[in-house]
């Protein structure tokens, strides 16, 4: 199936979960990332059970501190 992940369309295995996608995409801080699917945030405790579907648009939003000291 095709997914759009952070703006790039790529082929992924059917039945992929968000947790698995986070692993595949080498998300740096997998425990502290906000995920949206089709412009809806998904709860952080549900990455294991959330299954992705053909055409889903997935975004990862990262905590970014820094800038003062």
């Amino acid at each position: 199936m095709k997914l759009t992940v952070t703006g790039n369309v790529k082929e992924y295995a059917d039945g992929l979960t968000v947790a698995k996608l986070i692993e595949l995409e080498k998300v740096e801080t997998p425990l502290y990332v906000t995920v949206s699917i089709n412009d809806e945030f998904i709860a952080s405790g549900t990455f294991e059970e959330t299954v992705l579907h053909e055409g889903d648009i997935v975004e990862f939003l990262y905590f970014m501190g820094g800038g003062q000291r």
Binding site: T29, L31, Y32, Y62, G65, G66, G67
Partner: peptide
């Protein structure tokens, strides 16, 4: 996030 769970620019 918990302290030090996410890197800061320092």
């Amino acid at each position: 996030p918990p302290p030090d769970a996410v890197p800061t620019c320092r």
